[in-house]
Nucleic acid binder design. Structure first.
Lengths: 164, 164
DNA sequence: TTTAATTCAGAATGTTCATTCTGTTTTAGT
DNA sequence: ACTAAAACAGAATGAACATTCTGAATTAAA
């Protein structure tokens, strides 16, 4: 809270008055974050011209994040899932909502890719979308333990290759 | 530390005398844990008769862990990777050592499965082993956020199916 | 058995941090 | 401009917790 007061310039009074407590503030921040990252990364998968390359790019951005500075390794989703979700039903609900949306977006993107002949016709896009969601988080864990960019890229490519 | 003193029955004096501090105690616990889980789960992949089913079983055990009680969701590896690895080079080294070993074990198991004709002959087992390592952690993240056993099993099956 | 070294349980210390409180300043309505 | 409400900065409170300290109990050596 100290940090938030300093960085935002909003007083403790204001924060507690508006959000009640740290927990509530966090929940709203999480929703905001998810909404933003959905718009920034996943919306493009819903365009009719979405291709496998769109998916590749989403992963590439994440891998790039992991591999650079010490900061910003991982995302709020995975930290929340690991540290809070099992004991907090409400947060779990927020995470599930957005992760399901993520899987869905992947599935829609894959369907478009299928129409373009980039993936095999019998691919089950729903299952594949869930797999990609899981892969995203697996990558973050490996990235945090310092695995090289090459390894992370390799995992993404193997996964995408399996759709062909 | 309070909890450890209570649960082990060892006095603070003894713990600090033997391990120095919480950090050192933790590092040794992590190695112990990794060693044990390696022996319990991954050693069988090195047997010459290892099959795809051995891999499936390892994942099934993990999925079962995730889906039952509130306790024990996740493992020490992933928690350490998420919470400590980026700021602690030594722990990162420990994690990397064991995660690489894990990938290697998967690769060896896949090679045996290939000999049995269970996976396609041109599968790159090294890359596939790394992918399975990543998948393992991805599953834990989804499990923690409450995804159903069916979804988790589906991800495992899609992944294994992609090797055929 | 006596002495010296270990080990014990639990109290004391010091730090971090969320939350509340207080007295002052700013804003909005008249 | 004057009053009442809102918002401020920062101090006070209280809890959690790692680590160190203390005096008592236990063990091992003579």
């Amino acid at each position: 809270m100290e940090d938030i007061v300093r960085e935002t310039g909003v007083s403790r009074y204001g924060i507690y008055g508006t959000f009640g407590n740290k927990r509530e503030l966090f929940e709203q921040a999480l929703e905001e974050y998810a909404e933003g990252m959905g718009k920034r990364s996943f919306l493009r998968l819903l365009e009719p011209d979405a291709s496998l390359d769109h998916i590749r790019t989403i992963f590439a951005e994440r891998v790039a994040d992991m591999s650079c500075c010490d900061e910003s390794k991982g995302c709020l989703f995975i930290h929340t899932a690991m540290e809070l979700a099992p004991q907090d039903e409400e947060l779990r609900g927020v995470l599930q909502k957005f992760m399901k949306r993520m899987g869905k977006a992947f599935a829609v993107g894959l369907e478009s890719a299928k129409a373009r002949g980039e993936v095999r016709p019998d691919l089950e896009v729903k299952a594949a979308g869930e797999l990609l969601t899981s892969t995203m988080f697996g990558l973050v864990v490996l990235g945090r333990t310092g695995f090289s960019r090459d390894v992370l890229d390799g995992i993404v490519e193997s996964t995408l290759a399996s759709f062909r």
